[in-house]
Computed example of a mutant assay.
Amino acid sequence: MLIVGERINTSRPKVGPAVEARDASFIQDMALKQAQAGASMIDVNAGTLVNEEPEALVWLVNTVQEVVDVPLCIDSPNPVAIEAALKACRKKAMVSSVTAEKERYEKITPLVKEYGASIVALCMDESGVPDSAKDRIAIAERLVADLTRDGIPREDIYLDVMVRPVSVSARDGIEALETTRGIMQGIPGVHTICGLSNVSFGLPLRKLLNRAFLCILMGAGLDSAILDPLDREIMAAIYAAEALLGKDEFCMNYIAANRDGKLSV
């Protein structure tokens, strides 16, 4: 399971001021804690700093890379900021994100190819996010066809199944689940990913819903997620789900996590 640590985002109350003040120790502490908790990749997002996003994003990349050795996810819709950040990355990065919207696709995809990055591709187009899994899968098929045609290997494509709040529509969880299953069964060689916490927006005990939904999605084949790795219960659930789904030979990772005190119920 590829775990993208979500905490370094300037929309979060303490992160935004820290980035504006160029408080390296605060950001580095957050990056270290996420990596130590099991994040495979660290997301960096300076999207709320509209007037200085490229500079802030480069500063984040350099600051985080000083203390962790995991790759970074460059999280921005701004091609100028994305390119500046990619130039600063020491390891193969991930870019979040493209969609099937023509203008956005044409501006970001060449950067992904030039810098050899992987890409998060959202299952949406000019009309927005489709309500049905069938329509999301159709967009996913089109995105994969376009991305591979433009030189992006299938193994570098992470299709975002578009998790939305179940508090808004009771069907939204099911549609994300069916989108995940349809992509993993019907589009070989690609990955699926989601912004997990969207599912619980507006509801009490959000971590409980996030944890349960992640395990359900993993059963449908989800192999990547953007989440908070400092949530010990959700990380424990990942170890348990991988053991139960045959993704952990002889349950060795689960046993090691228990030995290291990482399992929590």
Rank of each mutant, 00 (worst) to 15 (best):
M1P: 08
N62E: 15
M94T: 11
E55K: 12
L32S: 13
K87T: 10
A117W: 02
M124T: 13
V95N: 05
A145D: 15
E175S: 14
A31N: 13
A24R: 13
Y239V: 08
S127V: 10
L86T: 14
I234A: 00
L177Q: 04
D29F: 03
A18H: 05
V199A: 10
I42Q: 01
M252T: 15
R206Q: 10
A176E: 01
V50G: 08
Q34A: 11
D223V: 09
D156Y: 00
P17S: 04
A88V: 06
E126A: 14
V70G: 03
V15N: 06
L2A: 00
A24L: 11
C89L: 13
A56C: 15
A145E: 07
E155Q: 15
K102F: 10
T148Y: 07
P17L: 12
M1H: 03
K14R: 11
A56T: 08
C73L: 06
L60Q: 10
A24S: 14
S118Y: 06
C73F: 02
A37C: 02
Y254P: 02
N198H: 09
I139T: 12
V64M: 02
M184K: 12
R149E: 15
Q28N: 10
R90H: 07
I234L: 06
I152H: 02
V68R: 00
T179Q: 00
A257S: 05
L214P: 03
A240Q: 02
L159I: 00
D146H: 10
V163D: 02
A176I: 00
I3E: 00
L203F: 04
L147C: 06
E53F: 13
R171C: 03
D131W: 14
E83F: 09
A212G: 02
S197D: 11
A100K: 03
G5M: 04
K102H: 04
E155I: 01
A117P: 02
T63F: 07
D231F: 06
E83C: 08
E126F: 01
T48P: 01
T109V: 15
F250C: 11
I193A: 04
P188H: 02
T63D: 15
G5F: 11
F201Q: 07
G151E: 01
S132D: 12
S132Q: 07
N253V: 14
G189C: 12
P110M: 09
K262S: 05
D29P: 03
K102V: 07
V68K: 03
T48D: 03
D223N: 11
G47P: 08
A243E: 05
L222E: 11
D69K: 09
S118E: 13
P110T: 11
V98F: 08
